[in-house]
């Protein structure tokens, strides 16, 4: 699979042991230029370990990893200059202002973005002169993103970027990321918000128990049977649900046979979330059965 050498990220048989336990157990995937790839999975599944190996923070036990054509284990400063890393939230004291912090970090990179434009892009223009410590959690997270993109990265890592956001902030953040996608930035996203993966991701990989249990375009994740639409209604005998590839016909037949509007009628197309929960649940059951 994959296109080999032009992949921005390629991971083959990645494995990571901590002491006696295995956190990542033979994961393989590739990310193509311009693609947004979402890595999904429950807490402790190995998402963060995987992303930190790709970022060069951790060594691996086995497997082959290339990020922008380089083994992250042999990271150089030139290589780091092409990456943008948005870590899980940090607790820095924040005595600098938003503008000071960004101007300072921009100096690290050979071709940084314009500082004022970047601050505007994350919606913090009015807070540019405010110290980081006085920002709300959501605003600080936007600073994290701004610091991640200030160097004009070819590849952006977003590790749980919207944890702790309110719904409005999350939608604004998605808009920001879509803008980066339009500019051609390749993005690796980890999240446990599946709507986030569905809105931003082109493809997704699902990790459970250190293994990649599925990978593919967002709307193809899971088995075909898991995506079959569900028609649901109620009558005197209780609740009914039918899985069918032809929900329209089912509803029409139902109306014809009842001769009236069915009560509580719903047509459900299983979203990523439903499919995912089913998959992760099945993987957990499988592990339990094996143990």
């Amino acid at each position: 699979m994959g296109h080999g050498s032009d992949a921005v990220v390629s991971v083959d048989g990645l494995r990571k042991d901590y002491g006696g336990s295995t956190a990542v157990d033979g994961i393989s995937f590739e990310i193509e230029p311009g693609e947004t790839f979402a890595l999904l999975g429950p807490n402790g599944a190995g998402k963060s370990t995987t992303i930190e190996i790709l970022e060069g923070y951790r060594d691996r036990t086995a497997g082959d990893v290339r990020v922008l054509g380089v083994d992250p284990h042999r990271a150089t400063l030139d290589w780091k200059a092409q990456l943008g890393i948005v870590l899980q939230s940090t607790g820095e004291p924040g005595v600098m202002t938003v503008a000071e912090q960004l101007r300072h970090f921009a100096r690290f990179y050979p071709h940084p973005r314009d500082v004022d434009e970047t601050i505007a892009a994350v919606g913090l223009t009015e807070k540019a002169g405010t110290r980081l410590a006085r920002l709300s959690g959501g605003q600080r997270r936007r600073v994290d993103v701004a610091l991640g993109i200030i160097g004009n990265p070819r590849l952006l890592f977003l590790d749980e970027p919207t944890t702790g956001f309110d719904p409005e902030a999350r939608h604004e953040f998605w808009e920001l990321i879509r803008g980066l996608k339009r500019e051609g930035t390749t993005i690796l996203l980890t999240t446990h918000y599946l709507d986030e993966a569905a809105r931003l991701g082109d493809r997704a990989g699902v990790i459970a128990g250190g293994r990649l249990i599925d990978i593919g375009p967002i709307d193809e994740i899971g088995e075909a049977s898991a995506r079959v639409p569900i028609v649901r209604w109620r009558d005197q005998r209780g609740e009914h649900s039918v899985r069918t590839q032809e929900p329209g016909r089912t509803v029409a037949d139902l109306v014809a046979s009842l001769g009236a509007e069915p009560t509580g009628l719903e047509v459900i197309r299983p979203a990523l979330e439903d499919v995912y929960l089913e998959m992760v649940g099945a993987a957990r059951d499988g592990e339990r059965a094996a143990a």
Binding site: A81, T90, G91, E92
Partner: peptide, 12 residues
Amino acid sequence: DGTLKRLGGTPL
């Protein structure tokens, strides 16, 4: 507090 981790991910 994560300051060093952040710096370690930059070309500093």
